[in-house]
Write a protein that binds this DNA or RNA. Structure first.
Lengths: 219, 219
DNA sequence: CCCAGCCTTAACAAACGCTTAAGTCTGTAT
DNA sequence: ATACAGACTTAAGCGTTTGTTAAGGCTGGG
C-alpha cells in the first residue's frame, strides 16, 4: 500500500511517516505542492495525505489539478486552520476526508484505513495462488490451510508478486514497492527476502529471471 | 530500450549510466548539445535524458529543435537551477518530465519508467512467428508449445529480429541493440549469439545476408 | 581455386544470484 | 532504562549461467 505524504512541516512529516510505516504502508514524503503534483502524475499511489498550507503550490491547488485531470485517488487533507470555510473548500475541491491539526495519530490511521476500505470498496479481495492465500486486510498469509508468519517486507514482496502473475517485475520495481524511492537499499536485501519467501512457502513459487527480476508464473 | 544521455558533467554522466545499465537500458552518452542533436537525427532512441546546461548548444535549444522537427521522443530534462522559469521553459519547449539536481538516482529510474510506460502505453503484445512465441511481459519464449530458455542477450536479439520480419538488420544495428555504441564488442560475439538462437530454435529461422547482417523472413 | 565472411566449438572470464551468518535496528516487555 | 526478540540489512563465499574471445573449418562469390 503506497502512500504519498505531502507535508512541509518536517517534524510532523517525520512523525506521520514513522507512525504509518509499521502499519505496512510504504510512505513517500514530499514537502511542496509542485513536486507532489508532479509525482502524482508520474507514479502510482494508493492514497495521498495532503497538507493544505504548502510552499510553491498550495495544497488546494494540487487537489484541484488532480481532480480536474480526472484522478480518482483517495485524498486525506490536513489543515491547520479549522475555519469552516477552509474545510468546505477542501471537500469541494475533491478531498475524501479531512483532519484538523493538531490531531491524534491514531485517528489518522483509523481514517486512512476507512478511506482505503471505502475506495477499494470491494473488500480488497484476498489473493489466491497455488494453495497460498494472502489477505491484504489482515496482512495474513496461509499456505495449504496453515498460517505462515511473514515479516512486513516479505509480505509486501509477496503481495507485489502475486498481484501480477505472469509478469516479470524488475528488481527496481520491487525495491520501490518495499522501500520508497528514497531510502534506497544498497545491497542484496531483496534477494534475501526472496530467499525467505521461498523457504517459508515453496521454492518454485518465485521464478528468477536472470538479469531482470522475479516473477510468479501465470496460474 | 535505448536511451540517449546528454550530460557534460563526467562524474554525473558516469553515475547515471552505471545506474541505468542494470535496468536493462542501453545507454549512449554524449557530452554536448551539438553531438546530441546530430545523434538524435541519425539514430533511433526510445528516450532522451537531457541536461540543460551544455557546451556548444544549450539543452533547451536541442529540445526546441527536436520538437520543431516534429520528433515525438520522450525527453527527461535535468536542470541544476531550480528557478521556476527554467523549468517552465523546459516544459514549454517540449520536455515530458524534468528533474532538479541534485536528485536521487532511484527517482530518476522511477520517472524514466513512468515516462516509458506512458509513451509506450501499448501493453507490449507477444510476438508470434512460425511456432515461436515471444512474450515481453514474462520475458519468455516458447517454440511449438515448449518453453525455450534464452539468455538475456539471446532474448534481446530475437526480440529485435522478430519485431521486424522481412527486413534485414545490419550487424551494426543489432550490436547497438545489444550493446550501446561505446562498449562496442571487438569480436564475433554477435555471430555466436545467432548461432545459439538457431540451435535452440531452428536454423532456418535466422537468415544471414552476407556482408550486411541478418533477417527473419516475412511470415 | 582463393579469399573474405561466416559458422562452430570450446575455453575462459565476468556477472549474477543464492545462501549463510553476522551485524544493526526497532519495538516491546521487564 | 535495559534487555531481549524479531525484523532487516550487509557482507562474503560459492556455484551457476552468461557472455566473450579466439582458433579452425566451412562456404559462396569472384
Amino acid at each position: 500500500m503506497r502512500i504519498l505524504l505531502v507535508e512541509d512541516d518536517v517534524a510532523l512529516g517525520e512523525g506521520i511517516r514513522t507512525a504509518l510505516k509499521p502499519e505496512g504502508y510504504t510512505v513517500d514524503w514530499l514537502q511542496d505542492g509542485a513536486s507532489a503534483l508532479h509525482a502524482l502524475g508520474c507514479e502510482s499511489f494508493d492514497l495521498c495525505v495532503l497538507d493544505l498550507g504548502l510552499p510553491r503550490l498550495d495544497g488546494l491547488e494540487v487537489l484541484r489539478c488532480l481532480r480536474t485531470a480526472g484522478h480518482p485517488l483517495p485524498v486525506m487533507v490536513l489543515t491547520a486552520r479549522d475555519a469552516t470555510s477552509e474545510r468546505i473548500a477542501g471537500l469541494d475541491a475533491g478531498a475524501d476526508d479531512y483532519l484538523v491539526k493538531p490531531f491524534d495519530v491514531a485517528e489518522l490511521k483509523a481514517r486512512l484505513r476507512a478511506l482505503l476500505r471505502r475506495s477499494f470498496n470491494r473488500p480488497q479481495p484476498a489473493l489466491e495462488y497455488r494453495g497460498i492465500c494472502l489477505d491484504p486486510q489482515s496482512q495474513a498469509v496461509s499456505y495449504e490451510g496453515r498460517e505462515v508468519a511473514l515479516a512486513r517486507k516479505e509480505f509486501l514482496l509477496l503481495h507485489e508478486l502475486l498481484a501480477q502473475p505472469g509478469r516479470v517485475l524488475t528488481r527496481d520495481k520491487l525495491q520501490q514497492a518495499l522501500y520508497g524511492w528514497d531510502e534506497e537499499v544498497e545491497s542484496n536485501a531483496l534477494e534475501v527476502h526472496v530467499h525467505h519467501l521461498r523457504k517459508k512457502l515453496f521454492p518454485e513459487l518465485i521464478r528468477t529471471v536472470r538479469g531482470v527480476g522475479y516473477m510468479v508464473d501465470k496460474p
